[in-house]
Nucleic acid binder design. Sequence first.
DNA 1: GGGTGCATATCGCTG
DNA 2: CAGCGATGTGCACCC
Lengths: 237, 237
Amino acid sequence: MRLVIAQCQVDYTGRLSAHLPWAKRLIVVKADGSVSVHADDRAYKPLNWMSPPCSLTIREPDADEACAVPALGARVQQVWEVDAVTGDHLQILLGDVDLDVTEDLGVDPGLQKDGVEAHLQELLAENPEAFGDGWSVVQREYMTPIGPVDILCRDAEGTYVAVEVKRRGEIDGVEQLTRYLDLMNRDHLLGGHVQGVFAAQQIKPQARTLAEDRGIDCLTVDYDALRGMDHPEERLF
Amino acid sequence: MRLVIAQCQVDYTGRLSAHLPWAKRLIVVKADGSVSVHADDRAYKPLNWMSPPCSLTIREPDADEACAVPALGARVQQVWEVDAVTGDHLQILLGDVDLDVTEDLGVDPGLQKDGVEAHLQELLAENPEAFGDGWSVVQREYMTPIGPVDILCRDAEGTYVAVEVKRRGEIDGVEQLTRYLDLMNRDHLLGGHVQGVFAAQQIKPQARTLAEDRGIDCLTVDYDALRGMDHPEERLF
DNA sequence: GGGTGCATATCGCTG
DNA sequence: CAGCGATGTGCACCC
């Protein structure tokens, strides 16, 4: 990883065009080939970047570029050209350099996450009684031509129920489930009528209203309680 | 901006839980208060971070934490605690420090962008003949109770047309326009029938199929050509 | 502050 | 490779 703090001017052309006037910024070159240009705000988001795969070429400024004066009495020291196979291009003109360090970080052992939608789905699939007495799971990630239904269940009467699981239930999730239901209701193998359940840790009022208007049941899920019902020894950490 | 490269172990609890085992990483503290932990890959995305507003407290390790040995012969030097008002918490245990520099970057003059959806919408609103002869613009960002329609037009026959503009036309955009049309078709002030146009630089086949199935017309827009029809002297750069 | 939509979104999985 | 969905999405804008 290489860290450079320098006066710079940046131009990007690709999916859009963007221009950064002269200012002092941080430039990060990672081992994966990525290049990012950061200001002292915007949290972790850079002002400009190039994602790998891309190639970085560093060269002397030509006569024309040397005239692009970063500050009074200063001059352009280097020109960085970053090219991606997609045609995206990032050009960085560098003036005075305040920091230029390179450190080998090695490969990161990686990130362990807990509490994402996949875990919620897993817990619900293992505890279908959370939906109601006599419910059973037919299949997780039940594939339809337009995407996978999170959990396909049958209720106590044997009716098929498509369950859409979300951490936060918003209007998009209801639209998604509606598309699945429209399709599944045309499938005679599923009995001609598939019920819908929208399950989330938190359901926005507008999403609930839309769901109920479409005959979809809503279930608010307590992740920690459900986790407690499960096997505590299987927790990640 | 403060840049630290050090052996570290990171734990995050908030919207989810996440754990990073000991490894050498880059830690960035920006003037906006944000803290990001980077590995040497994942392009500009950090492994873990805290967004402002948040507070950073640096302290000595207690007896318990000192036992968390980062590497053979090393010991925990510092503990960083980052807290957000939302209750989110980030804890970083630091071992050996390889780099610790602080630089004042000042306020960034900012970013100029060209070619995003807003520009496309602007160009189309100024050139409604792109939709067809005799078309006129009624209003941009026409408000409905569920959100703004990008452009409301009338065609040569005087029929109202809701135009949804996207850089890349995908299925979500068709759903969005459909919701607007459902609502507007109940509005007698708009003549009881509002036509739909889905305009984008590129329209995915599935989005096109869905749109046509719903009676929505598709228009592929050439941004550069449209820009040429417009006033070249008004270009950003 | 909630609702809505845009983003150079990025990333991972599946077919 | 495309399609689809999740993301600690983040962010701006508007009511």
